[in-house]
Computed example of a mutant assay.
Amino acid sequence: MKKYKKIAIVRLSALGDIINSAVVLQFIHKKFPDSYIEWVTEEAFAPLLKEHHLISKTHTINLKKIKKDKNFSLLKKNISYLRSLGEFDIVIDMQGLLKSAIVSRFISKNTHGFDKESSREGLSSLFYKTTSKIAYEENIIKRNCFLTSDALGFKLDDEMILNKEAIFKVAKSNFIDVQKTNIVFIIGASWESKKYPKEKIIELCNELKESAIIVWGNENEKKDAEFICNHSSYATLAPKLSLIELLSLISSVNLVIGNDTGPTHMAWAQNIASITLFGPTTTRMIYETQINIGIKSNSKVDILKINKNDFSIKSIEVEKIVKRAKELLNYGI
């Protein structure tokens, strides 16, 4: 097996995808304990990665700002920075988009990514020295793991993923009462159609009768969270949290219930029980285990052409979620 001393991972966004990609770090280090892994990401997600115990360096770029402001000076600065990082044995593009492929190529010619049929944007494959073939429809965590193991030449199977260590090392949260059974509710999402109705979350809180912590990420979500707390005596409004504080909170509770969004995926990452609710997306986005499950509405989903007007998540019955939540809480976790 070839030895890889210096490895770069390119995964620019989004939060959930970065979390689901970071699982590969522990497997790389088990095979190459002397390796140095550096990660390239968008600035917004850097705090989650900068303190990671298996990442030697985190590099940030600001493509969103460049695109928004049409700032060619900043673009030139970012390109110069990427080219100054030094030589890598391999650069793995875990995103598979044209922008991430170009970023990877600026870093090094030793690039690896998904082939034309496996990528969301097939043109990205033109920028790689070597590629991997795995169906785009395959589970996202399995895709990440296969891409990495194929790039580095080692075997990575389901048993290894199921027995993974918590992906991030964080301190326990001081926000919760450890004498209670604590459930975090993730009420936000990037699209309205991915959000479970706040009225049904109130029903969930009142049916479960446990300490419910309502997490929010912006002012609109805060208003919804306050609405929930005003209509359920079991619900508590979480304070404004940084990414690390959010990760710490989720790592400390008994159960997470939420939409298909980054903070919900943190539960799987940290080996915390979770229920992810799906409407316009599918359970392909999570790695289901005995304690991490998905509940999907009855709508049909074409993952190659997601329908953002699919609001079928509203049809998921509260009783179904309550039943699964009680099963997970009784699992002994």
Rank of each mutant, 00 (worst) to 15 (best):
W268V: 14
A273H: 06
M266Q: 03
A269Q: 02
L255S: 10
S248P: 04
S252C: 01
N271E: 14
N259A: 14
V253I: 05
H265G: 09
I250V: 08
T261G: 07
K240F: 11
N271T: 14
L255W: 09
L246R: 08
M266D: 01
Q270I: 14
I257T: 11
L247R: 00
N254E: 11
L247I: 09
G258I: 15
Q270H: 08
H265A: 12
A273W: 06
I244K: 06
P239T: 06
I250C: 00
P263C: 11
N254W: 03
K240A: 10
V253W: 00
V256Q: 04
T264N: 04
P263S: 08
S274K: 07
T261R: 03
W268P: 09
S242M: 10
Q270W: 09
N259Q: 13
K240Y: 06
E245N: 09
A269E: 04
G258N: 13
L247G: 01
D260V: 13
N271L: 15
M266E: 01
I272W: 07
S242W: 07
L255A: 12
S242N: 02
S242E: 08
S252M: 02
S252N: 01
A273T: 14
S251G: 00
I250P: 02
M266W: 03
T264I: 12
I250S: 00
N259Y: 15
D260C: 10
D260L: 11
L241F: 09
W268T: 13
L249K: 02
E245K: 13
N259G: 12
L246M: 14
S242I: 13
L246E: 11
L249A: 04
G262C: 09
I272T: 15
L246Y: 04
L255F: 12
L243H: 06
L246I: 13
E245Q: 15
A269S: 14
W268G: 05
N259F: 10
E245C: 14
I272C: 11
H265N: 13
H265I: 15
L255I: 15
I250W: 01
M266V: 14
L243Y: 12
S274V: 13
A267E: 03
L255M: 12
P239Y: 03
L247Y: 03
S274F: 09
G262I: 11
L249Y: 02
V253N: 00
T261Q: 05
A267Y: 04
S252R: 00
S252F: 00
G262R: 05
L241H: 02
I272P: 05
I257W: 07
S252Y: 00
I257P: 04
G262N: 06
L246D: 00
N254D: 13
S274G: 09
S248Y: 10
G262L: 07
I275E: 01
S251F: 01
S251Q: 02
L241R: 02
E245I: 15
S274P: 05
V256R: 03
S242D: 08
A267T: 10
P239I: 10
I275C: 05
P263T: 08
V253H: 00
I272V: 15
V256S: 02
N271R: 14
P263I: 13
N254L: 07
I244E: 02
I244G: 04
